[in-house]
Design a protein around this nucleic acid. Sequence first.
DNA 1: TCGTTGACTGTACGCGTGTATAGGGTCAGA
DNA 2: TCTGACCCTATACACGCGTACAGTCAACGA
Lengths: 239, 239
Amino acid sequence: MTARARIRDAAVSLFAERGIKGTSVREIAAEAGVSLGLVRHHFGSKEDLRAACDAYVLDRLMRLKEEILLDGRQPGAGPMPGAHPVVLFLLRYFARSVADGSPAADAMFAELVGSSQRWVQEHHGGRVADPGAYASLLVATEVGLLVMRAQVSRQLGADILGPDGHLRLSRAKLEFYSKPLLDEGSAELAYKALDRLEREHSVRRRSGTGRAASGGPASGGAVKGRAEQGRAGRGGGAP
Amino acid sequence: MTARARIRDAAVSLFAERGIKGTSVREIAAEAGVSLGLVRHHFGSKEDLRAACDAYVLDRLMRLKEEILLDGRQPGAGPMPGAHPVVLFLLRYFARSVADGSPAADAMFAELVGSSQRWVQEHHGGRVADPGAYASLLVATEVGLLVMRAQVSRQLGADILGPDGHLRLSRAKLEFYSKPLLDEGSAELAYKALDRLEREHSVRRRSGTGRAASGGPASGGAVKGRAEQGRAGRGGGAP
DNA sequence: TCGTTGACTGTACGCGTGTATAGGGTCAGA
DNA sequence: TCTGACCCTATACACGCGTACAGTCAACGA
């Protein structure tokens, strides 16, 4: 393995684990077993190195997915990522990149949403009113799981990137994607609440009525109970 | 407003926006309009300041949720967070904290999963086989949306923390949570595939069979095809 | 053989960082 | 008036960072 490849692998690994800011070029050099100067010789600045890693990982991810798709002996279960250990590793880098904010990762995020949206439209025709937002939610869930790998793994009692945890998570995903959280009744109720809220909001917008906004589909459960937001009064957040 | 509160608010705001590593104590001092020394005088080390922010935000979040719960005039639509501007701001800090990794945020994540799980069990009785994992997915989706605010907002064409984007996202969430992505047939098929995979895996585990894993519930949709960037190649960067 | 090229190392520079500490005000109470 | 407590500023220090550059060594073509 060439020194250049070792440096790249070390960078991808450390960036994925500790983030860009949390990783020094010296650490990368040490991990790759080369001198600090060689990193710069091969990749230029740290930002250049990061861009090279982005390009490498994303390209690799695309190619691997194609392969998986082609041999696809697995029954397609919708836009869910596969379990290739390599893919999972690369996806972890991707997730970190998205969380840290990188143009290349943003582009791939957009592409994922695009193809998920296509999938949704193909399989659910006109039943979904806002396929773009629906697809965004789907991608946010999948990428979010990678970003929050540590927390989710702790909840499940097994690393979701390991065999056991991944299996359990995959089954849970099937439940999550096939058994709706909300029944039609409460969804309809919530839609109505949103419509009401929008009217209030536009009224408020037109004339400076008091009553601040607070709008979304209910709250709480995450917090337990139900109900949702209440007033909005209150002033701004922190500042 | 006391200088101490200004410092705390500035820290929360900057930490939420740029992350812990991406924010210097000097920037916080400047944002709060105080000297560097005063930050240290009031909060001690940077890590202490971060812990104080964690405690403040999480406590505030809990109290606000309680208030929201109590007056709750909105119809409950399940475990979805409300739209209080303040809550959203605090949630953004929370999301960043989760992504960056903080014990306090981890604890709150666990608590959110716990109450979501309770909600699921209460409303779906025995219909969900793995309520813990199901609830984790729910929380990962919600927090993931906050973490990926920029990307999701770009997809939707409006800031999901602003009135318009939030409304659209809320409606999409209702679709996402009430219209299942997978029908029973394909879910059943995928379950079977997972079972088969598990058997293969345990066999492989027992005796070292070849064939790498590539498992999971199918792959690809999300990605479709096509690669985008070119290799990582390129020669010496810097002269 | 010589000269060139490219991989690779070692060392140094400037800068921003978190941390430390001495000191200047102001105000309440003895 | 003095004194001590506080809130607050200013300055300094050591350190790790990204960056820059001179130089060593081996391979290779003329």
